[in-house]
Nucleic acid binder design. Structure first.
Length: 377
RNA sequence: GUGGUUGUAGCUCAGCUGGUUAGAGCGCUGGUUUGUGGUGCCGGAAGUCGCGGGUUCGAAUCCCGUCUUCCACCCCA
C-alpha cells in the first residue's frame, strides 16, 4: 500500500531556482540590516505556549499551532475540560509548547532572559519562519518567513526614522524603481486622540478595528460598523470627519517629494486644531511631526510616504508609531510599529521598542508577478 | 475558524440536465513544403478526468467524505 505523498495545507517545497530567488531577497534585506548596525539572533521554532498566548489578542491566540505533549498526554489531561468539551481548557493541559506565531514576542522573551548581557539600545535582526493556523489564500501561507528588525531599549523617534529609511533602501534595491509602493504611517496615539475627542475611549479596540477597514469598506461601511457599536450620529459623523483627512493624500496618485511633505504638514495642522486638546492626540501629533521632519531632511529614495490616520493594524501590542508597506494587488508586504511594554509580560518594565517585519514570501510573489528578478546564474 | 470556489493531456482550458473509443488551442514529435531546425500543410504520442467511497445497467458528469487551489469574512507578512 503506497499513497501519494503530500505536504500540509499552506506549506510549500522550494526548488533550486526558487531558493535562488528567495536567497536574493534574504541577502538584500540582510545587507541593509547590517548596514544600519543590526545584529542577528535566532530563537527556537517552538516556545512555551505560555510565552506566546495573550500578547496579540484572542484572535491571534487561535492561530497558534500547538504541539501535543509527548508521552501519555491524555492521562494528564484536564478531565473536566474534556468532559465539558472546553477546548481551550483542554489545550492548556495537553499542549505546553507551540510554534512561534511571530518573531517579536520571542524576541521580547529573549531580551528579558538575556538582559544582563545586552547593552541597550539593542538592534537585532532575525530571519526565520513563523507558523499561523490561518486559512491559506494568495500571499497567505501557514509557514512563512519574517525578516524582523527591532530596536529595543530606546524611546528615540530616530529609531522610527531609521526603520523607514531601511524600508526605503530595501525596496529601492528590490524594485529598482520599476514598481510603486507606499509606506503608510500613523500613530496609535492619534487614533486614541480621535476616539477620545468623540468620547468613546471605552470602545477603543473595536473602533480601531472598524477604522482599519476604511480602505476596504469606505466611509459608509465604517459608519455602519460604528452604529453597530452603539455610536450616536453625532460622534460618528465627527469621527468620520477627522478620518476624512486621509482623502487629502489619497486623491493624488503620485506626489513629488515636496508635495508629499506639504500635504502631511497640512494634515497634521488639521489634527492640531481638532484633537490637540487630548493628551494622547497631542503626543501623537508631536511624534509624527518629528518623524516626518527628519525624513524630509534626510530624503527619500523611492518610497511614497503617506500619513494615513485610518491605518490601525490589529496587533494588540502597538502603542505609538505604526507602519505598513503596500503595493497594488497584494496584501501588505511589510509592517511594524512601536510597542511600549512587550517585555512587561515577562517581568521587565519600562522598556520600549520599535520594529518592522518584511514578509519575504509576499515579496517573493510581488517580484515574480512584476518580473523584477535579476538573472541568476 | 465561518461561507463559497477550484482540481480533466507538459501548459491554458472545453466537456449542457449521467449514455458508446474524454476534446480544443499551445507545446512536443514524424512526414512534407521551403534557401532555412522559420512559415504553410498532413499525421502522431500523451490523461489513474485530485483521492476514497456510494447511487446506477452505465459517472469526468449525481451524492457523501477527504485533500488541494483561489475568494469573501476574519486577520495579517
Amino acid at each position: 500500500m503506497s499513497s501519494k505523498p503530500s505536504i500540509p495545507k499552506g506549506t510549500r517545497d522550494f526548488s533550486p531556482i526558487e531558493m535562488a530567488r528567495r536567497n536574493y531577497i534574504f541577502d538584500t534585506i540582510k545587507k541593509v540590516y547590517k548596514r544600519y548596525g543590526f545584529q542577528q539572533i535566532e530563537t527556537p521554532a517552538m516556545e512555551n505556549l505560555n510565552t506566546l498566548i495573550g500578547t496579540g489578542g484572542d484572535e491571534s491566540d487561535q492561530l497558534i499551532f500547538k504541539i501535543l505533549n509527548s508521552g501519555d498526554y491524555l492521562s494528564k489531561a484536564d478531565e473536566k475540560a474534556l468532559a465539558d468539551k472546553n477546548s481551550n481548557g483542554l489545550t492548556r493541559s495537553i499542549a505546553e509548547k507551540a510554534l512561534r506565531y511571530d518573531l517579536t514576542v520571542p524576541f521580547a522573551r529573549y531580551v528579558v532572559q538575556n538582559q544582563n548581557d545586552i547593552t541597550f539600545p539593542f538592534r537585532r535582526y532575525q530571519i526565520q519562519p513563523v507558523w499561523r493556523a490561518d486559512r491559506p489564500q494568495k500571499g497567505r501561507y501557514r509557514e512563512f518567513y519574517q525578516c524582523d528588525a527591532d530596536i529595543i531599549g530606546s524611546n528615540s523617534l530616530l529609531n522610527e526614522v531609521d526603520l523607514i529609511k531601511i524600508i526605503d533602501d530595501v525596496f529601492t534595491e528590490l524594485f529598482r524603481g520599476k514598481l510603486d509602493y507606499t509606506v503608510s504611517i500613523n500613530n496609535r496615539k492619534i487614533l486614541q486622540g480621535i476616539i477620545e475627542s468623540v468620547g468613546e475611549q471605552d470602545k477603543f479596540e473595536q473602533i480601531v478595528v472598524a477604522i482599519d477597514k476604511y480602505d476596504k469598506i469606505g466611509s459608509d461601511g465604517v459608519i455602519k460598523e460604528l452604529y453597530n457599536l452603539g455610536f450616536d450620529e453625532k460622534s460618528g459623523e465627527k469621527l468620520l470627519q477627522l478620518l476624512g483627512v486621509k482623502e487629502a493624500s489619497d486623491s493624488f496618485k503620485k506626489l513629488s517629494f515636496e508635495e508629499t511633505f506639504k500635504i502631511i504638514t497640512l494634515q497634521l495642522e488639521f489634527f492640531e486644531k481638532s484633537i490637540a486638546d487630548t493628551i494622547n492626540g497631542q503626543k501623537g501629533i508631536e511624534e509624527l511631526e518629528f518623524v516626518f521632519e527628519k525624513l524630509k531632511s534626510l530624503g527619500i529614495r523611492t518610497a511614497n510616504i503617506k500619513f494615513d490616520p485610518t491605518l490601525a493594524r490589529g496587533l494588540g501590542y502597538y502603542t505609538g508609531t505604526i507602519i505598513e508597506v503596500k503595493v497594488d494587488n497584494f496584501p501588505s508586504i511589510c509592517g511594524g510599529g512601536r510597542y511600549d511594554d512587550l517585555t512587561g509580560k515577562f517581568g521587565l518594565k519600562d522598556v520600549s521598542g520599535v520594529g518592522i517585519s518584511f514578509g519575504a514570501d509576499r515579496i517573493y510573489d510581488v517580484l515574480l508577478d512584476n518580473n523584477l528578478y535579476p538573472e541568476f546564474k
